[in-house]
Amino acid sequence: MTTTTHPTTTERPGETNGVPTAKMFGAIAKFTDNAELAQFRFSAKNSWVDGTASTSTIHEWYGIGADQLHVQEFQFSSDHPTLGHGYGPTPQEYVLHALASCITAGIATGAAARGIKLNRATSTVTGNIDVRGVLGVDQDVRKGFSGIEVSFDVDADADEDQIDALIASATKYSAVFDMLTGPTQVTVGRTEA
Rank of each mutant, 00 (worst) to 15 (best):
T3W: 03
A29I: 03
A22L: 09
W61A: 09
W48I: 01
M1S: 09
A113P: 00
I103W: 03
M1F: 03
P183H: 14
N17K: 10
F40V: 11
T122L: 03
F40D: 06
T191Q: 15
A98G: 09
I116L: 02
G106N: 00
P13Q: 11
R190G: 08
G84C: 06
L118I: 08
E73M: 05
D155L: 04
T55W: 10
G110L: 03
V188H: 05
A113N: 05
Q75A: 14
P183N: 14
S43G: 14
I103D: 01
A170H: 01
T191G: 13
H85E: 14
T171M: 00
I28M: 10
G88I: 12
A100M: 03
F25D: 13
P20M: 06
Q139W: 10
D130T: 03
S77K: 14
K45G: 13
I167C: 03
S169A: 11
Q75K: 15
G189Y: 03
A112S: 06
V188T: 13
A44M: 12
A112G: 04
H6S: 10
N119Q: 14
G65Y: 10
T32Y: 06
P91V: 08
S101T: 12
T4A: 07
T171F: 01
A100L: 04
S47F: 08
F152H: 09
S123N: 05
S101V: 03
N128F: 03
I116T: 02
F25R: 11
N46H: 04
R132N: 07
V176S: 04
R12K: 10
A158I: 03
P81K: 12
M24N: 06
T3N: 12
A165W: 01
A105L: 10
V19T: 12
I103L: 07
C102D: 04
A121N: 08
G147Q: 06
D138I: 01
T124W: 00
T57H: 09
R190P: 02
C102Q: 02
A35N: 07
F42I: 10
Y94C: 01
T10C: 02
I58Y: 07
G144I: 05
T16K: 09
T16D: 05
H85N: 14
F42S: 14
Q68V: 06
A121I: 10
T21W: 02
H59S: 12
V49E: 06
T124L: 06
T10K: 09
Y87D: 13
Y173S: 04
K143P: 01
L37F: 09
D159Q: 08
A98M: 03
T187C: 05
A38I: 12
